[in-house]
Amino acid sequence: MKVQQISVFLENKSGRLATLTRTLANENINIRALSIADTTDFGILRLIVDKPDAAYLALKRSGFTVSETSVIAVAIPDHPGGLAGIMDVLAGAKINIEYLYALPEKTPDKALVIFRVERLDDAIQVLQSHGIGVLKGEEVYGL
């Protein structure tokens, strides 16, 4: 139920993102989703790709500082209040969210959101017990 996310340390200077995406392109790796968190000096790029292990190795070889993080991909009812319902479930279980971002792919009635939470296993369990869809890694990589 967990999805492997690739995180990369990036200095805020021109050309770094270009080098990174070129590295992935050369390995024929497809990006499913990405999000950047940044400060004035540096940013952390988070990526969901179709081949996480290959991406990790390719970036490391190219000298990037990389880590792999487990996140969850949640299918959210695509109507007003859909996300709020999920937040209530997590808040009810006292699970803190570190960050979240949306995947561009969606099904006709569901939006996909990546969550990085504390206590990942508890989060999966509580979401599923409320009938909320948590996607398998392979489902997300193969989107």
Binding site: Q5, S7, F9, A37, D38, T39, F42, I44, R46, T65, V66, S67, T69, E98, Y99, R116
Partner: peptide, 14 residues
């Protein structure tokens, strides 16, 4: 930044 101290959370890096 060192590989082993790298975290994907901004606040740990800060």
């Amino acid at each position: 930044v060192s590989e082993k101290m790298f975290s994907d959370e901004i606040r740990s890096m800060e």
